[in-house]
Design a protein around this nucleic acid. Structure first.
Lengths: 187, 187
DNA sequence: ACCGAGCTGTACCAATCGGTCTAGTGACGA
DNA sequence: TCGTCACTAGACCGATTGGTACAGCTCGGT
């Protein structure tokens, strides 16, 4: 088929995990979505669904870490935050609130231990990246650590609220409050 | 058995949804945990697992709404927020980060449409309660709506972070930042 | 005491779960 | 050109999924 079955499996797994979480979608579903045969999973991911899930969380998490750093580097903190929230707004809107952050779903799945640990690692990466950025700005340098956590938690929480309420209002509100907070972060 | 099978089923469902989400646990598991017979589910919840899940989300959500209002009414905004976050800290700590907020899990499950909608309604209840409280205080009255959303999103997000990282640090950080924010909310 | 209605426990169902196995396919090196 | 070998597709597996059917029990009303 077109490109490596491994990549297609990972890509399909990420999409379906966005939608239904790890426990919520079956191997057969991932297979059908990716067009791969059943054998392909177990040659590329000998650990089966668990290994595929962990790898899907790690790769999609890395993509998001890259997105965070590049967007903030290019556009600065305020505009970067807007762009990141817009990213989630777009995804929720275009999928009818069906897909959102796969890391968020994985973090709550305490079957799938490996995937959950991977989600924790991804959160740590985000926190590290954001802390570095916030520490570089004088206005936020002293509370960089806790501010970074607040931003991540608020955005991920807003995604959950938006998903449940089928509304973008939580993302709008969180963006406004975070912008307000960062604007006067030095007190 | 001791008390009504309906209540035991709901209570067990909430516990297991805290742990594995709706998709992550089977009817057999709920049955075993509650000690009820298989038939009991379908007499009390003719809609099957979906109806049980929706009802579990609604009742546990109502309990949490009550907790929010009473705690904040009795202890005020700052101490009330501390008590609420301590509630989640206790749950995560005492269960080894295995159990957390069932509403959060339900909001991300877009199979189980009814349960997801119920989660959205619960979030709306929380938002309404918090907005009322914040509007009553002069310091937060003008931004009450967005502040309420930020608080809910940040706390729920912090729960997800804590779950993934097996650490209470996200809850500590969010509590500190929210306390700081509410302390100078008037600017 | 008796009867009837409602609840409960269990056997059973098809469908699906994740995983294994293998024959066949394709590309690549000798 | 042939042989090799990693990969693939799909048949197949036992276990488990959510749901149904039903027989027996318990309890309340008369």
């Amino acid at each position: 088929m077109s490109r490596g079955a491994r990549e297609r499996l990972l890509s399909s797994a990420v999409t379906l995990f966005r939608r239904s979480g790890i426990a919520g979608c079956g191997v057969a579903e991932i297979l059908a979505h990716s067009g791969a045969g059943r054998g392909s999973i177990y040659t590329h991911f000998p650990g089966g669904k668990a290994e595929l899930a962990e790898e899907a969380v790690r790769t999609s998490g890395q993509d998001l870490t890259d997105l965070i750093t590049t967007v903030v580097d290019q556009q600065g903190l305020a505009d970067g935050l807007h762009a990141l929230i817009e990213y989630w707004r777009d995804m929720l809107r275009s999928t009818g609130y069906a897909e959102s952050c796969p890391i968020l779903s994985a973090a709550l799945q305490n079957d799938a231990t490996a995937a959950q640990r991977a989600a924790g690692d991804v959160f740590r990466d985000w926190h590290e990246a954001l802390t570095g950025i916030l520490r570089a700005e004088p206005a936020t340098s002293d509370r960089a650590d806790t501010l970074a956590t607040l931003i991540i938690a608020a955005v991920e929480g807003a995604i959950a609220l938006a998903r449940g309420q089928h509304s973008l209002a939580p993302l709008d509100a969180v963006e406004a409050e975070l912008a307000h907070l960062l604007g006067l972060a030095g007190e």
